Simulated scan of single mutants.
Amino acid sequence: MQFGIFTVGDVTTDPTTGRTPTEGERIKAMVAIAKKAEEVGLDVFATGEHHNPPFVPSSPTTLLGYIAASTEKIVLSTSTTLITTNDPVKIAEDFAMLQHLADGRVDLMLGRGNTGPVYPWFGQDIRQGIPLAIENYALLHRLWREDVVDWQGKFRTPLQGFTSTPRPLDDTPPFVWHGSIRSPEIAEQAAYYGDGFFANHIFWPTDHFQRLIDLYRRRYEHYGHGSADQAIVGLGGQVFMRKNSQDAVREFRPYFDNAPVYGHGPSLEEFTEQTPLTVGSPQEVIDKTLTFRESFGDYQRQLFLMDHAGLPLKTVLEQLDLLGEEVVPVLRRELDGKRPAHVPDAATHASLVAGRKPEVVA
């Protein structure tokens, strides 16, 4: 079982002080958070990709390459790489390069993103979002597995005798997660290739994501990658902790109430009841996170969102101390102890090189 954090890289005013970090401060804070995540024993650091204010991570591989140079163990990933508006050739090259720099500590999560205007900014039509995701990944999948590619598609110029460089480390492409909050077509795509499916269920109720994950598991088995319970599932979550739950609620409330995404909507209490958000003590975080297995079955990766809504860096680092020292050891013990022997761990570069995950080429 892998545990980690993901960031969306928002630049948000702290509602308790009125101070807004600069873009440079926010970028450096993300680096500090990644290094702290490794220090406290987490397995994964993932960054989003955005091309509009108030977000800063427009170049995930640049950020992750910098972090790779100052870390040793933590897996570097994305919490969305835009498969619709990035050229698959550039994704293939960038992540293969990052693989070499990070000695294989790399995977990525593909998604369509949730910012509509990004499509015309990069010359695409949002109405073609699903076909773009399907065609672009079909090409990316081949670019990492075939030394010479001839390609004819709908959305980009043809390729003739093209070789993507560098080649993937050890001739082994990075593991791919397909992230979605609403699209059964993406769950189907993940199942078809035998890739991972990540349900970032931080905003919508559990039953919505149960349907997506159940579909992915059934189709994973249908395509011959293993039994449904062996499918590779990742989940998102949000937490804010203090030793005392009342202190956590009191401190986090102004950040929640003014957050750019869900502020000025449902109350903190309503939101925590209806979504995975947990605001309370470490034990409350443990208790609620353990219910995810009851809802979704055994899964391989749990990522938490912790550095958003204007929370200062000092507070985020304190949250990571609590997560690494008091929460993750218990979750790891409990969830690994309950997982049947035939259900695999999350894929790593070493496990893929060793051939522990069967490869099915489309």
Rank of each mutant, 00 (worst) to 15 (best):
M1H: 08
Q2I: 13
G9L: 00
T16W: 06
G24V: 15
R26V: 06
K36I: 01
D43W: 02
T47Q: 00
H50E: 03
T62C: 05
S70G: 13
S70V: 14
S70E: 15
E72L: 10
K73T: 10
T78K: 04
M109Y: 08
L110H: 01
L110Y: 04
N114K: 14
P120D: 02
Q124E: 10
I130L: 04
A138Y: 09
R145K: 10
V148N: 14
G153N: 04
R156A: 00
G161T: 07
R182S: 15
E185T: 15
Q189M: 09
H201N: 15
D207V: 13
D207K: 13
H208G: 10
F209G: 06
L212C: 11
L215K: 10
R218N: 10
R218K: 10
Y220M: 05
G224R: 01
A228V: 05
Q230L: 05
G236N: 02
R242M: 01
N244Q: 12
S245V: 09
S245K: 03
F256Y: 06
D257G: 01
P260V: 04
V261P: 03
Y262M: 13
Q274H: 13
T278N: 07
T278M: 04
G280A: 08
S281P: 09
T289V: 12
L290G: 08
Y299F: 12
R301N: 13
R301L: 12
R301G: 07
Q302P: 00
L303M: 10
L303V: 07
F304A: 05
L305C: 13
H308P: 15
L311A: 03
L311F: 04
K314A: 13
V316Y: 09
L317I: 08
E318L: 15
E318G: 14
L320I: 05
V328E: 08
P329M: 05
L331K: 02
E334M: 12
R339S: 06
A341I: 13
A341K: 11
P344M: 10
A347V: 07
H349Q: 05
L352V: 01
R356E: 15
